[in-house]
Design a protein around this nucleic acid. Structure first.
Lengths: 344, 344
DNA sequence: AAAGTTTTCGGAAACGTTTTCGGAAACGTT
DNA sequence: AACGTTTCCGAAAACGTTTCCGAAAACTTT
C-alpha cells in the first residue's frame, strides 16, 4: 500500500505474451530482435509506465552509469562551479553525478568514497580535504584500476590523472604585479602548507620576490588557511603587533577579504595603507569594496576536463596512463592593488 | 582485470564453512545466530575485506537508505547551506544524501526526480525550479505515498510537507524598517512572481506600505529575478530613466548587490541617494560596501527540519499527514539602509 | 522440396543479497 | 530414555534485470 508496486519487465512480458528476454532486448536495442516486435514492446511498455529498474541492471551489469564527486565543501562558490562543469559533460553522456562533501575532514572523505564505491559508481572525481591524509586507500584503488581523477587539491604522491592549475606561475604573476606597482614589503597569506596547491603558491611568491631581489624572511609567509575568518584573525594580529606590510598576496579570495574586514575595522585604507591581491577568483572579488585584484581560475573548464579525463579512463577499461592537465587563468587587476603613488 | 573482483558473501561463507544465510545473519545482527559464531564471522569477513554490496541489498529490501535532494542551483550559498543541514541529520541516521541540481529548469528537475526515483531513494527533499511547472507528477507521487518534503520554493497546490520561511512577515519587517528610517518612495525588486515565495514577499511589502499609508503604484514593484545581473540591469534602467526611488527592498541579496553595482557605476551613494535592503542573507551581505541590511534565514535549520520531516514520513511508512513548518529569521541592520538624515 | 543460413525468440543461469521455512542439535524435563 | 523446547543453522526462493545457449521459424539456395 504505502509503496506502490513498480511495473516490472515480467508484467510487460506477460501482457504481450513474449518472454522476458525479448522485452529486455527491445529496451537494450539488441540486434537479435525483429524491428516491429521491438516497437510493439516499447509502445506497450511505455503505456504501462514501465521503466527498467536500474538497481537490478546495475547488479548484473557491474556498471552503474553513476559517477561520484567528492569535494571538501561547497559553501564557497569554487566547487559548485566546478561541479556544474562536471555535470555538463557527464550528463550528456548518460551519466549521473552524485555529489558528496567531506567537510574538510579526512575521515568523512574516506567514508564518502567507500559509500560511493559500494554503490558501484563507475569512477570518481575527488578534491582532497585539507586535513592531513593517508594515501594508502587511494593507492589501492588505483592499483585495482579504479578510475579516479583528482582536481584542485591533489597530492603528487598519488599517481592518478589530475587537472590542476599552475599555481606556481600565477602566484608568481600575482606577486610580480604587486612588485611592479611599487610595493616592497609584501606578505603572503598561505593556505594549509601540506597541500601541494599551497606549496606551489608559496614557491611562486618566493620566485617573484627573488627575481626582483626583494628581501623577505620566513615571517612574511603566514599560514592562514582558506576562510574569511582566518584571514581576518591573521590581519588583526598584524595590526595589533603594528607589523603591517605594504601589500598582501593572499592564497585565496576569502582570506584576502578577511584581511580587508580587519583593516576596515581598524580604519586602514586599501590599497593606500595595505594593497591586496587574492586568488581563485570568486564572485566576492567583484563585489567587495574596493574590488579585489585576483587570479581567476577557469572553474567551469576544470570541471569539464576532469570529467573528460575520467571518461577516457572509464572507456579505456583497463589501465589508462595517468594524465595531468594544467589549465590557465587570468590576473584580473582591480582597485585593491593599484600603485600607491597614483592614488588620489 | 580492470575491475577487480569484490569479495562477496559467498567467499566469506566458503572460507568459514558456513552457509550464506549465516553470514548474512551475522551482518544484520539477527537474533537467531549464536553470539560467538557471529563474532567469528565478522572478524574473518573484515579481514577478507568484505563489505556487503548495497546494490544487491537494495534490490531485495526495497529500501535504499538513500535520499535525494533536488535544488534549482548551488552557486548562491543559500542551497549549499541548507544541504549541509540536511546531511547533518540524515547521515547520522545512516542515510546517504544524493544531490542533484535542476539548473532552474523544469524539465531537468523532472528528469532528476525520475532518476532518483529509479534509484529507489527512500524519499526526496525538493526545492522547485523557477520555471513554470506542472504539478501532475508530484501529485501522483504523493498519491502513491512517496515521501517528499518541499522547502523554499514551494507550491501551495501541492499538499506535501514543507518547511518554509515566513516571507510575508519578514518582507513586512524589511519594508517597515525602511519606512521607519524615513524613506518614502520605496521600490520592491521582486522574484519570479509565479513562485509563492515571491508573492508573499510582495504581500509583505504592500502590507507595510499600506499600514503606514505610503502611496505606491504597480510600477514600484518590479519583477527582477534572483541573480546579480538581473538586479543590475533593472537598476541601470531606472537610472537611465531618471526614475530613482529613495530606497529599494530587494527580494534577495544578489539582486540588491546588482543594484549596488549599477549605482556605483553611476556614482550614486548608498544609502544617501538610494537605500538598500536585501533578503535571505548570504555571505555577500557582510562583505559588500556598504554592508547590506538583510533578512537572514536559518538555512542550516531549514535543512535540518526538512530532513526530520522526511524521516517522520518515511518511518510512518504509510500516509503521514502533511506538515508545514515555518521558521523564523532576523533582520540584520547594516549601513546600506540607515536613515538618510543621520548620515554624515 | 530438401538442405543450408540467417533471423528471431524462449529458457535458464547469473548478479549478491535477505528472508522464510524447516530441520538438526542442544538442552531441560519427566 | 523418551519427550518437548529452544537455539541455531542450511536450502532455496526471491528481488528485476541481462546474457548465453540452443532451438524454432523464416528465409535462401540448390
Amino acid at each position: 500500500m504505502s509503496v506502490m508496486k513498480h511495473v516490472t519487465i515480467k508484467d510487460v512480458a506477460r501482457q504481450l505474451n513474449v518472454s522476458i528476454s525479448t522485452v529486455s532486448r527491445a529496451f537494450n536495442d539488441k540486434y537479435d530482435i525483429r524491428k516491429d516486435t521491438r516497437e510493439r514492446i516499447l509502445k506497450v511498455a511505455h503505456e504501462m509506465g514501465y521503466r527498467p529498474n536500474p538497481i537490478a541492471r546495475k547488479l548484473i551489469q557491474q556498471k552503474t552509469f553513476n559517477i561520484g564527486v567528492v569535494v571538501p565543501e561547497f559553501v564557497n562558490s569554487y566547487f559548485p562551479e566546478v561541479i556544474i562543469g562536471i555535470q555538463e559533460v557527464l550528463i550528456e553522456k548518460g551519466y549521473q553525478v552524485l555529489v558528496m562533501q567531506s567537510n574538510e575532514c579526512y575521515t568523512t572523505e574516506l567514508k564518502n568514497i567507500q559509500t560511493l564505491e559500494d554503490n558501484m559508481v563507475d569512477g570518481m572525481i575527488i578534491s582532497l580535504s585539507s586535513e592531513k591524509h593517508n594515501n594508502d586507500y587511494y593507492l589501492q584503488m588505483l592499483e585495482k584500476g579504479y578510475p579516479i581523477v583528482f582536481f584542485n587539491r591533489v597530492d603528487e604522491k598519488i599517481p592518478a590523472s589530475r587537472v590542476t592549475f599552475d599555481d606556481y606561475k600565477w602566484a608568481y604573476f600575482a606577486t610580480e604585479h604587486l612588485i611592479k606597482q611599487g610595493y616592497q614589503r609584501i606578505f603572503h597569506f598561505s593556505g594549509y602548507q601540506h597541500l601541494s596547491l599551497s606549496q606551489n603558491r608559496i614557491k611562486g611568491f618566493r620566485k617573484a620576490m627573488d627575481k626582483f631581489s626583494i628581501p623577505y624572511t620566513k615571517e612574511h609567509i603566514i599560514e592562514t588557511g582558506f576562510f574569511i575568518e582566518e584571514g581576518r584573525q591573521v590581519m588583526e594580529r598584524l595590526i595589533a603587533e603594528n607589523n603591517l606590510p605594504d601589500a598582501i598576496f593572499a592564497n585565496n579570495d576569502p582570506t584576502a577579504i578577511g584581511a580587508m574586514k580587519a583593516m576596515k575595522q581598524a580604519g586602514l585604507r586599501i590599497p593606500e595603507d595595505v594593497a591586496l591581491v587574492g586568488f581563485s577568483e570568486s564572485k566576492l572579488a567583484e563585489v567587495v569594496e574596493p574590488p579585489l585584484t585576483s587570479v581567476s581560475q577557469p572553474t567551469f573548464e576544470i570541471g569539464k576536463t576532469a570529467a573528460n579525463l575520467l571518461l577516457k579512463q572509464i572507456n579505456a577499461d583497463g589501465f589508462a596512463a595517468a594524465e595531468t592537465v594544467v589549465l590557465n587563468g587570468t590576473l584580473n587587476i582591480r582597485a585593491s592593488s593599484l600603485a600607491p603613488v597614483t592614488q588620489d
